[in-house]
């Protein structure tokens, strides 16, 4: 069953179209990873689904219901939670208070503050500490915990790895199966492509606000992803579909980029 479907979504930042005519569907319990370079529209997409940004055109359907015009706080009550880019914890509040803000809507579900502390055991001794004094990785864990406390059916994760050491990122992603075990549907945005491919059931690569490639991680080759990521296929072969999706056969090796993204798996 489809939890989230996005149809013909276009989102503008002023004059700039950050997301263009995008279609997406995520099934119950599925994990969809959105990958793409900086400025591809990933964060904009998540923020629009969370309700912080308003789309120019297109519809967002959640649980069969049109939520395109629903304000962000009501989407939380309906079960959509975003872990925003850059954590966005409440710095003056303690760890426990930050987690408790997630329970504001009292949405029923498996997650309570105690259960979240079980998921991240280090929090137990530090509930009274101000969130501002935590390390980046710890803040990210609290941000995930805060979103879980809303008991989401659809969890949106924006760049968990941003500014964190690889070992810390791995530690965070190791918790993901426990979250998924609750039947939570996850839509995650990640620049660390190898990490995204490891955890996702489906991958969608954005480029210039359009879907450049989609598929199951097992069905996609490193070259395809590299091409979709950097745009080599579209520019060299010029045979992208009308909807902007590069043909699966259009393989080419993107070179000359020093973006330093790891695209092998």
């Amino acid at each position: 069953m489809t939890v989230l479907s996005v149809d013909g979504l276009t989102v503008h930042h002023g004059q700039l179209a950050a997301v263009v005519d995008l279609d997406l569907a995520v099934g119950e319990g599925e994990t969809l990873a959105i990958i793409g370079a900086n400025g591809a529209g990933k964060t904009t997409l998540l923020r629009t689904i969370a309700g912080v940004l308003r789309p120019t055109t297109g519809t967002i359907r959640y649980d069969g219901q049109d939520v395109t015009r629903m304000p962000a706080h009501r989407r939380v009550a309906a079960g959509i939670a975003l872990v925003p880019e850059g954590r966005r914890l409440f710095p003056a509040l303690t760890v426990a208070e930050n987690l408790a803000t997630g329970a504001y809507r009292k949405r029923p579900g498996p997650w309570s503050v105690d259960r979240i502390i079980e998921l991240f055991p280090w929090m137990a001794d530090r509930t009274g500490q101000a969130a501002a004094s935590l390390s980046g990785g710890e803040q990210q864990a609290v941000a995930i915990g805060r979103a879980l406390a809303t008991n989401p059916r659809l969890l949106l994760l924006d760049e968990l790895s941003l500014g964190l050491a690889p070992i810390v990122v791995r530690g965070l992603y190791e918790r993901l199966p426990e979250i998924l075990a609750q039947g939570t549907t996850v839509l995650l945005v990640e620049q660390d492509v190898s990490q995204a491919l490891r955890v996702a059931d489906q991958v969608c690569c954005l480029r210039g606000g359009r879907a450049a490639l989609r598929g199951r991680p097992a069905d996609l080759s490193a070259e395809q992803i590299q091409a979709a990521y950097f745009g080599a296929a579209a520019t060299r072969n010029g045979d992208a579909d009308a909807d902007g999706t590069a043909n699966v056969g259009a393989l080419s090796v993107a070179t000359g980029s020093d973006a330093g993204e790891e695209t092998t798996r």
Binding site: V52, H73, V76, A81, R88, G102, R105, R107, A147, A149
Partner: peptide
């Protein structure tokens, strides 16, 4: 904004 993201109006 983060407050609206945890469900506060």
């Amino acid at each position: 904004e983060a407050a609206t993201l945890v469900g506060a109006d």
